[in-house]
């Protein structure tokens, strides 16, 4: 097909499924996965507490939970459910699994720093916004409580909340973790726009906002802004 012919396509022309079918995926996932949500949700709520501990082992456990969430939402929602009706979702699913494994390995290799005490409350508030408020977007859109998007089971809420934790990673490790989230944000925003799922557009928007706030909260940035910090950057010799 010529390049000119491609220009005649609209976003809607690439949609293979309707909004009703997409929203049903959340309901089916929650039905099939029940009652594991009872384990997933408390673990999710414990992440801010772990991230603020001075002991590195707790923070590593928190990052591993985030890694598991990526693997769960990739292999579960994206590959097994969304992939049935939209083949690119399968690729994204395996990309999410790869991202989860990468995060898990990085949690071993690099030691993230504890969130400064002054900012722990903000981090907790933002995390709870991600894992408690954002799941209601799917409920608002579908009108079904059973469609709630749970962290660790569905990709957008997982990505939005975990972007806070990713932002805590040392900058050098952060770059390889960015491509998949960025491509997913673009893909999901385009999909929701084409499906005219207006509430769903909050999810990619929230991901970008939470990531920006996460960067602002990250210990390295906090330290560089702290005039009392002993860290003065590399010494010129």
């Amino acid at each position: 097909m010529t390049d000119v012919a491609w220009l005649s396509y609209s976003l809607q022309d690439f949609l293979m499924f309707g909004p009703q079918v997409f929203l049903r995926l959340f309901i089916r996932l929650n039905q099939d996965f029940w009652p594991w949500q009872l384990l997933v949700v408390p673990l999710t709520l414990a992440v801010p507490w772990m991230m603020c501990r001075p002991t590195h082992a707790w923070r590593r456990l928190a990052v591993w939970l985030v890694a598991a969430a990526w693997i769960g939402s990739g292999a579960g929602f994206l590959v097994r459910y969304f992939g049935e009706i939209n083949w690119p979702a399968v690729w994204f699913g395996w990309a999410f699994v790869a991202q989860g494994l990468l995060i898990a390995v990085l949690a071993i290799c690099c030691h993230s720093e504890a969130i400064p005490k002054g900012r722990a409350g903000v981090f907790t508030g933002l995390w709870l916004t991600g894992v408690v408020a954002l799941p209601w977007v799917t409920v608002l859109q579908s009108g079904e409580l059973g469609a709630m998007a749970v962290f660790g089971l569905t990709p957008d809420v997982t990505l939005a909340a975990s972007s806070l934790v990713l932002a805590m990673m040392p900058r050098v490790w952060l770059w390889p973790l960015l491509p998949i989230p960025l491509v997913w944000v673009l893909f999901s925003a385009a999909t929701y726009w084409a499906l005219q799922l207006v509430w769903f557009l909050l999810l990619p928007a929230a991901t970008l906002i939470l990531f920006a706030l996460g960067c602002w909260l990250s210990p390295s940035l906090a330290r560089s802004q702290d005039p009392q910090s002993g860290h003065r950057g590399p010494v010129r010799r």
Partner: peptide
């Protein structure tokens, strides 16, 4: 097209 693509639901 679209209408019958409902997966295994």
């Amino acid at each position: 097209w679209i209408t019958f693509n409902v997966g295994n639901d």
